[in-house]
Design a protein around this nucleic acid. Structure first.
Length: 307
DNA sequence: TAAGCGTGGAA
DNA sequence: TTTCCAAGCTT
């Protein structure tokens, strides 16, 4: 059969999304803006499978922004667990405090107000506006940039993010708000499950015949080689080790407990501990011990430097 | 603007 | 084993 000349990506994506979208808990109709915001922060650079159980715990424990705002930060960081990038948890708690104090405990629905909250950038603000409140606004993440790079530009991979991403993606959205929001979700879902970075499943793609990359014969990427990210021995690894000690401890710990977490390079350990203090992820008590922020201090005489 | 920031699963 | 990658934000 021949293709109608005015068939759009959205025409194909919407029915595909209805039939194939994953049943993710934060997509359920009864989830509040708060639930969507928590999911979006947790999902930054973090796979869905690891987020799901933690998101459920957070929603049960802190169902409103004011609940999280009132929690001891030490408990927030423990509940964050090993999701990674724990500064996200700090900023999420700070954002919750602003929402509770200035927005009547309701997550804002407009992009500008969302952007003013700590830890919320161009992607997350639009994701909340679209997915929680059905706004028509382009939602551009790594998945969407890859889908657009392939389907629209015929390139194997997206380049660096640019100011053109937003208007370019908006041009793909239907005029109707609800349909546009759903199209944004569908673009992301396609990139996450079909039009993936490695081994795209083009045979299952609903826009296969509209895809510029297909028409071009699926050319390989061209451009400069991207430098691999190292891990072993980095400050990130050391910070992770230090924080893991504090998360696992019931309360404040002595300095040697942290020193044993990284014996390779004492100077590096000291530098990383200092950076954690600066970031507000760790506190030092008056008696010299270290703790997660807001950790209740034991009043028992379990620690007496004079003895 | 580019670098820094966690973690772990899959290729 | 190593490398790549996953719904980014901040400075």
């Amino acid at each position: 059969m021949t293709l109608a000349p005015d068939t759009t990506l959205a025409d194909r994506l919407l029915p595909w999304y209805v039939a194939h979208a994953r049943d993710l808990p934060w997509r359920h109709a009864d989830v509040t803006g708060w639930g969507v915001l928590v999911s979006e922060i947790m999902l930054q650079q973090t796979p869905v499978a690891r987020v799901e159980p933690i998101w459920h715990e957070w929603m049960a424990r802190w169902p409103r922004p004011s609940d999280l705002a009132a929690a001891p930060t030490a408990e927030v960081l423990r509940a964050w667990g090993k999701l990674g990038y724990p500064r996200r948890a700090l900023r999420l708690q700070a954002a919750a405090a602003v929402v509770a104090a200035e927005h009547d405990d309701v997550v804002p629905s407009d992009v500008e107000t969302l952007l003013a909250l700590p830890g919320i950038g161009a992607y997350t603000a639009r994701a909340v506006a679209a997915f929680a409140y059905g706004r028509r606004c382009p939602v551009v993440d790594t998945n969407v940039r890859r889908v657009v790079a392939r389907a629209v530009h015929g390139r194997a991979e997206a380049g660096d993010a640019s100011a053109r991403d937003l208007p370019e993606t908006e041009a793909l959205l239907p005029l109707d708000d609800a349909a546009a929001a759903r199209t944004s979700a569908a673009l992301m879902e396609l990139g996450a499950t079909v039009c993936v970075a490695r081994g795209p499943r083009c045979a299952d793609c609903p826009v296969h015949d509209l895809c510029a990359w297909q028409h071009a014969g699926r050319p390989a990427r061209d451009g400069p080689v991207k430098k691999a990210q190292r891990w072993a021995g980095t400050d990130r690894q050391v910070r992770g080790r230090l924080l893991d000690v504090l998360r696992g401890a019931p309360g404040p710990v002595e300095a040697p407990a942290l020193e044993s977490a990284w014996l390779t390079d004492p100077a590096q350990r000291a530098r990383c501990l200092d950076s954690l203090l600066v970031d507000g992820l760790v506190e030092q008590l008056a008696d010299g011990r270290f703790a997660l922020p807001g950790e209740p201090v034991d009043t028992q005489a379990t620690h007496d430097p004079s003895s």
